[in-house]
Design a protein around this nucleic acid. Structure first.
Length: 227
DNA sequence: GCGACAG
DNA sequence: ATCTTGTCGC
């Protein structure tokens, strides 16, 4: 798929904040999706002491969740990990991997937050805007916000509140397992996002999309080409 | 000023 | 994220 470059990649947090504030105003948190036939999972891993960023995209059919295609991209790491600026470290490589895709996904599940972010612009928002594809943030841990305890049952959830606003949901994807943090990335509402995340869950805590992407980005099973 | 802090 | 073996539990 083709992706139009909307900005240069900043080298400092100060420059990154300006970009986040500009793009955050363009994020859409209402449903604007087409029929979902393909769901993509995205993840990033690091090699060579972190100097190389490896991005993986896995496209699964929906709703049957069978792997249809995957791409990889390697790039030198140019931005450090700073909470609140994860996208500037990972998105450049992800974009490159997405451009190699033959199938254009109808929905993207990201490993990280959507609008559940200090400036309402997590990695799912960034990827959603750059690709103009509906995107959901599914994070394994909390970045910002508070929430009440939730039932142990699969499907239970509680609003994630930050500065008086509901920015996401804390969702129990499997009974008695630690919950995940779901938030809108772009072109999707929270209720719809929760629904899709649950529909991508089979027998594990994380969606099959992110499990595939994670496996590919970390090269487990030695199924990847060296480069 | 003191903590908190996606991956 | 990454460094790393065995081990407890279903």
């Amino acid at each position: 798929m083709k992706i139009n470059q909307r900005h240069d990649w900043p080298l400092t947090a100060e420059e990154a904040i300006i970009i986040q504030q500009q793009l955050a105003s363009e994020v859409i948190t209402s449903d604007q999706l087409t029929t979902v036939q393909h769901v993509a999972g995205v993840d990033v891993g690091f090699t060579e002491s972190g100097s190389t960023t490896r991005a993986a995209v896995a496209v699964l059919s929906f709703p049957d969740l069978q792997l249809q295609e995957y791409t990889l991209a390697y790039r030198p790491t140019t931005f450090p990990y700073v909470p609140g600026f994860l996208s500037f470290r990972e998105v450049p490589a992800v974009i490159e991997a997405l451009e190699k895709l033959n199938i254009t996904p109808d929905l993207i599940l990201c490993d990280g937050q959507g609008i559940a972010h200090p400036r309402r612009f997590g990695i799912a928002c960034h990827l959603g805007l750059l690709t103009d594809i509906p995107a959901i943030g599914v994070a394994k841990s909390l970045l910002v916000g508070k929430y009440d305890e939730l039932p142990e049952q699969q499907g239970a959830w509680q609003p994630l509140v930050y500065r008086g606003e509901t920015v996401g949901a804390v969702l129990r994807t499997r009974t008695r397992v630690k919950p995940v943090y779901v938030s809108s990335g772009h072109r999707i509402s929270l209720p719809t996002a929760i629904d899709y995340v649950l529909r991508c869950i089979t027998k594990y805590r994380l969606p099959e999309t992110t499990r595939w992407a994670d496996k590919l980005a970390s090269n487990r099973g030695s199924i990847l080409p060296a480069n």
